[in-house]
Amino acid sequence: MEILIQIFVTGLTLGSMYALAAVGLSLIYGTLGMFNMAHGMFMTLGAYAVFSLASVFGVPLILGVLAAMVAGAVIGMLTHLLIVRFMLNSPDFETNILVATAGLGILLEDLILKIYGGYPYPQPVKIEGTFSVGEVNVTYQALVILLIAIVCIGSVAWLLLKTRFGRAIRATAMNRDAARLMGVRTNTVYLQVMALAGALAGVAGLMISTLATLSPQMGGDPLLKAFVICVVAGLGNVWGAGICAIGLALIESAIGFYFGVRFGFPTMLMLVIIVLIWRPLGLFGKEKVVRL
């Protein structure tokens, strides 16, 4: 029973961080049709932005979350304005944008390394202390992560489903030309999506850095997992990504507990490949009919 609670708590904490990353990644893919290889760096930047702010002013958690969001949103918008915007209607967009964002990722990582060095700083903005559930000690930080993830993803869901703003985003994702005929400025929508996904990534980065430490490469591992989650859910399926994030994180933490942490991700990946052989477009993906 204790073990189960432990696995459950670890899985939920991991899962909520993955979900923050994966939902943004999926949102970008669904709307712009691009896979953002720099998403991991969006997370890293969010974490470092809060670190910088906190080492100067000493900010409370809520302000830290806001700062991470702003940092992520800004880098997301800059990515759109400086790179994506010019490539949107080019042939081979899908491959070329992968290359461009991968280039951006390696560039940003090097910049962080040059500015902060490789020292694994601890994240100052976090909550200390534990409480116990049964016999298991749970950190308050884990609870905070879960709460923040729920609030963030809940807000995004509300935004997308219930507002005019969100309707325009979904319309653009479903049918770009028809959305333009309704008077939607699709270029603005793309910018908003990049900002929204960037903000989620920034928060994810902050959360990840509270559990481990800050490092220029900290975004790599969660990005990899977010990729896998998006692929299982079906690229562009935002809700599926959220659900798969929690599910896969629970499996990962169970495997990690019983067989060792290094087998967590390989098992997850094997499962994913089996899922894809059975359903090539992901668990929640829908077949698109392509005519000859």
Partner: peptide
């Protein structure tokens, strides 16, 4: 050119 995954009402609202 409807928004395929939206409801009828959402399409009209768009």
């Amino acid at each position: 050119q409807l928004f395929a995954e939206m409801s009828v009402e959402e399409n009209l609202l768009m």
